[in-house]
Write a protein that binds this DNA or RNA. Sequence first.
DNA 1: GCGATCAGGT
DNA 2: CACACCTGATCGC
Length: 690
Amino acid sequence: MSRFGGRVREYPSVSIDRFDHDNLRARAYFLSHCHKDHMKGLRAPALKRRLEGSLKVKLYCSPVTKELLLTSRKYKFWENHIVALEVETPTQISLVDETSGEKEDIEVTLLPAGHCPGSVMFLFEGENGTVLYTGDFRLAKGEAARMELLHSGTRVKDIQSVYLDTTFCDPKFYHIPSREECLKGILELVRSWTSLTRYHVVWLNCKAAYGYEYLFINLSEELGIKVHVNKLDMFRNMPEILYHVTRDRHTQIHACRHPRDDDCFRGNRLPCGMTCQNGTPLHIISIKPSTMWFGERIKKTNVIVRTGESTYRACFSFHSSYSEIKDFLSYIRPVNVYPNVLPVGRTEDKVMEILKPLCRSYRRNMEPRYKPLGTLKRAHKRDSSDTDEDDLFDSELISARPKILKQQGEESRLSNTGQSESTEGCKATTTYISPKVDFMDCEESNDDDDDEEEEESEINVVQVLSHEPDATSTSNFDGLTTTDQQESNADIPCWDAFFKCNKPEESSENEENFPSSADAGGSQSLFSDSDGVSDSTHISSQNSSQSTHISEQGSQGWDSQMDTVLITSQERNALDCSCFGKGGSRAAVSILQETTKDSQPDNSRWKPLGQNRCCVKDAEAGTAHAQDVLAEGSDNSRTPDLELRRDSQSSSDFEIPSTPDAEAPQPDKLHCLYKKLAAGENILSMKKVS
DNA sequence: GCGATCAGGT
DNA sequence: CACACCTGATCGC
């Protein structure tokens, strides 16, 4: 829950996501997204009165947020005071004090936040420095590096302060499976069930909040089944969403709600009242999206957990994980950071202890540390001509952070016109890879879940749903660690490979083996994969607040990147015979979803950028023509986003350097380094800090 | 009657 | 576990 008071220190005359108390006097308002805890006071009479007496006071938000907000009658009075700003389009705003006439100019840029439809971060630039307010966000590792407007030229902007979504800023939330992984797990479960008969339906037990739309869209696109919802009015001008939801209850996927929907479900009734079709009773399973997290050392990340005879929990997060937060912040490297949220049971001091080391003000006092891997990772994007040896491992070079260039398809889309030029059809890019199902044991997901633990013995009984002949854990182990690159260089440290950013196969491996610079104290790493088997040792540095961590070689390689959906015998039985009377107790882990070695997330359709930018069509493109408009949307705007999502999640971790100040070593320097390494010499480069 | 706040629920 | 939200009780205006 946001505890942000509404104002940033640098620009106290604007209020963001808070509209009560002192915020009533703000010169301008900003709303990052349409969740109630960010709208406190937004419809209060006091603020309403203020608007009535003012021509100048405006509320700035994304086009989608404006649309969603104005759908509610309670916020209609804002209608003439809302200014929708295009995402990624810097805009000058004059902040005028209506009583004194005092004026201050500020430039604001909306950046996609990946939290829910229309959600954005605000980047303010003005006399008091550059400030980033993240609102609520979920950005995958490396996504900050792709944001053109966080950069100036090839470098990250000099950001004074970040007001950060710290919801999961606690090491216990170290890892949350990516959107694609979660989506894929849910997709397979829904697919398995709904394909049995037309009377097998799924109820998505979603909360009353925006943020599940991309799930609906993906399920609908992949399975050709629209999702039944209570309301779709708010999407009337968002054909990309509208097309995939329906008010027609005669569908196999439901996300409808009812005040006592759990009771409905227990009575084999959907919240909308459906209980049978053509006289045939429905077979209903419920899937409840909720956040699942995994500690740093827990490598197996099952995204679906069976919680009962016909109930499942599916991993789904609106917020960035601990490691994503740290990656984000360590890339931005502001002077100051302020947490917007205190994770439950944490104090501000504790959170700051984690965040401060990622800021410049702190780093300046630190000894530079040797971080070869981060350096190497970053190297591929840099023109190394200006790199000298002294700079190589200099963590002080905060200004030398190169941004990640966008992919071509993305370039055109990000041309700030708000329009998309790609002519590729969306189906052309849909290359769903059927999951292979292996025999393997599962590990409990969240360390404190008793239910899973007591059922562990059952988990090992696994039937293969769709068998792949050679798919055993061993072959996976080999397969996942033997990349083309590595095969050809079996005996040499394949660092060369890591200068080339374009091998998605290596992305997750990279994640496993290359400690992010975001690690609180930085870390030294030794790395070898000469036999194709990953192996890594992380030893936290002396002043780290984190405990020493030495990863186990075997599990590290084994579980780091399998593309596996695992279904227990119980589930298979449930799926197969759809009889609910079996005496099976709660099965702990039903579907196990691993980081995919080389999957191209075909179903990565959530487009925080696209939704903010393109979704809201003009009124004339409303409901009546929604379908036609959608077709256009598919052709023109979806594909580039799809490319982006592919790139930015599961296959891009490798590309995205985690060490912001890394530099590209030149080949001769590299050679020198290799030689030193081979000779067992210390290549740590100490640089004097003044 | 309305809003704010809290407790309790999903 | 947590999130975002809802309902209902209570209090104050």
